[in-house]
Structures are given as structure tokens and as C-alpha cells.
Design a protein around this nucleic acid. Structure first.
Lengths: 192, 192
DNA sequence: TTAGTTTTGAAACAATCGCTCCAAAATGGA
DNA sequence: TCCATTTTGGAGCGATTGTTTCAAAACTAA
């Protein structure tokens, strides 16, 4: 019934995601979002409610499409230890355009420190999702004899995620890529 | 000659620093800065030029007063290995108020990714300063027989700084402190 | 075709942004 | 004491912020 939407939601969320991801929440204006999503303010507010609510939708979109896909592809693969390394490699090896944008979750954790509780909670939940996935992969690697039985999956997963965050900070501010291989060696040295 | 300034520069820079540090650059308005520094816009613009230039002064202030002091106190101490650990501990153990603000350099690297080149350059320089200080401390620890001769100071300093960045991301978004000791153990396990 | 419903695009809203302007205030030198 | 010079506080600048409003457009059901 009635007039249908003229856009596909995922396309709009994807465009909005790139905006927020690259520029940050505060630096992204509704005019920017209009231009990038090719929607008018009317449509955006009619469909998403507010800038803040749109961002929340974008966060969910990012978690499922970017993070979720990466977890599924690498941390749930047949070779868990190699999968963890590929997980880190994939976080660094994206095309230059989006590589230098780092990670939306890390950027959000930094920028939106005193923003609405909803955003903070979503962010913590997502970070937890990554940590849990790392934990499971480590456990499977231990079971498969790829890592020592003495290794504590909970502890190591926490440390790995900290390294990952640090990596994603550096990748956003340092355009040089010569340190990437060394970083992979470092991660590999932790998987014992 | 003529009317003197009514404020002490360091006091103003310190107040402005806390503003930018806690809220970020974009989220800090000139009205916020007026309130916190107890100066009027006239005085701020007369003495500092613009919001952007004030922020550059704040970055310098942060590097010398916060980072420089921490480097001098811990990374140039008599016991280099212990000093590195204390350096990390000090980054985590500040009073709750400023602990949850993380690190102005990391926050800036994330938020001001596509800001003026001056800010980016200052930031990279500061990060480099930390890395170099870590490097020297590691070298001294090796010379003192506290760490293996096989350890590469350049490589390890780079890895440690990445861990530090990750730590400072987590510390800004996660108010829980129970993971702090484990993190120190992790750092200690890298100093071999 | 027509009536009913929703989306769209553009104009404009009040609020706030960084910043400028300038008279009044505060000093040292003559 | 009065002049020259600089700082101060506050009013207000144009531009931009997120958001609202609403007529025109686009569809379905009858």
C-alpha cells in the first residue's frame, strides 16, 4: 500500500557508514549524509529518526557486515591458529581507502566516550563479540595441538584484542605500511 | 609597558587540555573553553589566535608536561626493565578522573585523522618520542643483563607502543579496572 | 479514475558554531 | 596627571548545526 521507499536500506547504511567511519560522528553533518546517501533530509528523518539513531543503525550494520563477516571467515575456519593470523592480516590488508580509516568500533570508543549510553553499550558488546571469537579460536587451536595446553584462552584473547586495538589506532594515523609484517610476526609469537 | 595579561599561560593551557582531552576537539566549543579557562573569547583570541592554534599549544603542553614527565620519571630511571613496567602502570593508575580519558595523543590520532597537517605532524612526532624512549630503555635493560641479547629494541619498542595504544583505547571505554594487573603481566612477559 | 496513504525534496526553523569588533579597564612612561 | 598601549568582557557577526514543516509526487486499493 501507498508510496514505497525509493532506496535500499543496506545501500544507505553502507554510505552512511563510510561517512561516519572516515570522518567520525561529530565531523559528519546531515548535509554530508544527504550528499553521500543521495537522500534528502526528509527521507532520512522519516526512515531513521535522527542522526543519532542513524548512527546506531550504522554501528549494527558495521558489526554484522564488517566484523561479523571477518569473524566468520577467519576465526571459525578449519585451521584456528592460521585463522587468527589471517584475521589480523585482513584487518591490515584492506584496500588503502578503507585501511586508513581504522576500525569504526575503536574510533567510536575514543570519540563518543561521553555520548548516549546506547552507543557505548553497543560498542562494548561488539568489542566483547570479537574477544569471545578470539577466545574460541584459541581454545580450538589448543585442542588441535597448535598451541600449548598451558595457554589461558581468556587471558590471551584479552591481550590479543588490546594489540588489535593498538594496531587499528596506528593504521589510522600512520600511512606507512612497512611495519605491517613485523606486527604479524609479533602476533604469531603470541600464539604459542 | 601597557596592561599585562591577567592569567598564567600554563594554568589556561592545563584547563584547555582537560577540556580537549575529555571531550575531544570537535565536541569542545569555545564556550566550553571560556568557562573552563575562565577567560573571555577576546582574551583567548588575543593570546592564542584560534581554536586550532590553541589546540596545537595544548598538544605541545601535553607532550612536555604529561608524556615528557612520565618518560623522564620511568623510562630514564636506574632500573630500566622495572622502569618500563612502571611506565605502563603509571599510564593506567592515574586518578579515576583522568584515567578514563585515555591519552590525548591516541584520541587525537583517531579523531583528527583528516585535520590540519600541523596537528598530524605534532602527533606523529610525539608518538615517535615515546617509541624512542622505550627503545632506549630496552637497550639499557639488555646491557644491564635484564633482558636477552637476542631481543631487538627497535622491534620490541614498536610492539610495546602498539600494546600501549590498545591499552589506552580500552581504558577510555571500559570503566572496569580488573583487567589492569593482567595487562601488566602481559607487558612483563614481553620484556624477556 | 479516484481516494487514501506514505515518501520525497526543498525551504526554513531555532540554536549553536568559531570568530570579530570595540568600548572600557588596566598598566608604565612622560 | 595624562598619554600611549594592550588586555578584557560582552555583544553580536555570518555560517552552519540538527531538525521540522509541508506541498508535490508516487504508489495501492477500490
Amino acid at each position: 500500500m501507498v508510496r514505497p521507499l525509493e532506496f535500499e536500506e543496506d545501500t544507505v547504511l553502507s554510505s552512511a557508514m563510510l561517512c561516519f567511519w572516515k570522518q567520525g560522528y561529530a565531523a559528519t553533518s546531515m548535509r554530508d549524509l544527504e550528499r553521500e546517501t543521495k537522500l534528502s533530509t526528509g527521507s532520512i528523518y522519516n526512515s531513521f529518526g535522527s542522526k543519532d539513531q542513524l548512527f546506531e543503525r550504522v554501528l549494527d550494520f558495521y558489526v554484522t557486515k564488517v566484523i561479523g563477516r571477518r569473524i566468520g571467515k577467519f576465526l571459525e575456519s578449519d585451521n584456528p591458529r592460521e585463522g587468527i593470523l589471517e584475521f589480523f592480516a585482513d584487518s591490515m590488508n584492506s584496500s588503502a581507502d578503507i585501511r586508513e580509516m581504522g576500525c569504526l568500533l575503536v574510533n567510536t570508543a575514543i570519540e563518543m566516550n561521553n555520548h548516549t549510553p546506547v552507543v557505548l553499550e553497543k560498542n562494548l558488546l561488539a568489542q566483547n563479540k570479537v574477544e569471545k571469537a578470539l577466545q574460541k579460536a584459541i581454545s580450538r587451536a589448543i585442542e588441535a595441538g597448535q598451541m600449548s595446553q598451558k595457554t589461558d584462552p581468556v587471558n590471551l584473547a584479552q591481550n590479543l584484542q588490546m594489540v588489535l586495538s593498538g594496531l587499528l589506532v596506528k593504521i589510522r594515523s600512520d600511512k606507512d605500511t612497512s611495519w605491517h609484517p613485523q606486527t604479524l610476526n609479533f602476533v604469531s609469537s603470541l600464539l604459542v
